[in-house]
Amino acid sequence: MDQLLPQLVNGLVLGLLLFLIAAGFSLIFGLMDVINLAHGSFLLFGGYVGLTVIRSTGNFWLAVAVVPLVTGAVGLAIEVTVLRRTYTRGHLIQVLLTLGLALIAADLMRWNWGAYVESVDAPAALAGLVDFGGVFQVPLYRLAIIGFGLLLAGAMWVVLERTRLGAIVRAGVQDREMVAALGIDIDKVVAGVFALGTALAGLSGLLAAPVTSLYPGLDFDFLILALVVVVVGGMGSLKGAFWGALLVGMTDVLGKAYFPEFSLFAIFLIMAIVLLVRPQGLFGTREAT
């Protein structure tokens, strides 16, 4: 029986799931030029906060509202207290600082939520299977992820390309004095961007949870996937994150289906190939340093 068609659907689902996972990271890098290695921690944290809300109220949609507020607030606190000190000191310091934060977060989350695998059920409205002409079935929630991903991509595109926010932040990162001279408090704008990026990460973690479940170590799995996606697509490019996610998702699914011997390193292989052909990634315009 040919499995190509259902596997392509699986690839599309995983691609958009990966876009959700990478979106916050890409936003923060694109606007702030900050490499946030604690990104995976925010995703898992969002998932766990959502789990707690769902456990106590039974309402998935309430969690969707609460989670971004909580993770965004934590992100804001981190920006104001520690991250802000590193902006003038280069990428390496940021990479190391956020890696340290990720180590601490991993340990604290395991402490608070335990080491058991916790599953999150899809909301009742999105439970069930969708039948494709009797040939194959796909869970409705997985199809909904395609919708979430496209919605998020559209919203980010509007904010970045059609509003002043994107222009202000990007100009501010390039030239603080100039933007400050325009009467804009650049510190507040940058803090806001980080809060937004981490809020987005938390929300993505919650939306991914019904598919991935939650467990210690998922934070670093998420992080590595996000890094692979943005490196393949080109750091800091929304378009790159989108197409990079689809390429990585398709590679992973088709690799698992047709070349199971290589499935463990299929996504790393595709990353290596892309970087060798285009060291700045598919849609990257510059090299990150």
């Binding site: 029986m1 699986n10 699914v253 088709l254």
Partner: peptide, 11 residues
């Protein structure tokens, strides 16, 4: 993602 494996079983 387990989906590709489950699909393989299904098919």
């Amino acid at each position: 993602d387990p989906a590709p494996f489950i699909t393989e079983i299904q098919q």
